[in-house]
Design a binder for these strands. Structure first.
Length: 144
DNA sequence: CTTCTCACA
DNA sequence: TGTGAGTA
């Protein structure tokens, strides 16, 4: 299929599909016309890419990791054990990032809490934190 | 009409 | 990552 159809079937813009190719995530074959020719399986590939992207992985990582997955139902199944440990490390990185952000926010809350300014109007600042007492805030919308 | 590459008030 | 140009 050509880029237009893949775009419609995946909901991903043609622009992005070409970008994915640039990043080595997709390898469409070329027609004598120069048009990209995608395999039907690329519809699934694009889904995987989107999933991995929402998992916070960079395109470079995804390019290396992509072939190590098998389509198990609608889920992504890691094939190589090497990949599993790698993703585990990635998960840990995210965890520390979250921790750092949480503490950063705590510090800011303290600073804002000590605010002592004349301006009454803009005095009230939003503290979404109050809605999420302890840690976790609403999660990003699940994968589509 | 669709796709391609390249470029950017 | 959108958008327009100028093609094939």
């Amino acid at each position: 299929m050509r880029i237009g159809e893949l775009s419609r079937q995946t909901g991903v813009s043609e622009r992005l599909l070409r970008y994915y190719e640039e990043q080595g995530l997709l390898h469409p074959r070329r027609r004598p016309s120069g048009y990209r020719d995608y395999a039907d399986s690329d519809v699934h590939t694009v889904r995987r890419i989107r999933t991995l992207l929402s998992a916070g992985l960079g395109t470079s990582v995804i390019a290396e990791v992509l072939p190590c997955f098998a389509d198990k139902g609608d889920l992504l199944a890691p094939t190589c054990s090497e990949l599993v440990v790698g993703l585990g490390k990635e998960r840990d990185r995210i965890s520390t990032s979250i921790d750092e952000l949480v503490s950063a926010r705590t510090i800011l809350d303290a600073i804002l809490g000590a605010a002592d300014v004349a301006d009454t109007d803009s005095g009230g600042y939003d503290d979404p934190t109050s809605k999420y007492p302890t840690s976790d805030a609403p999660t990003e919308p699940a994968l589509r």
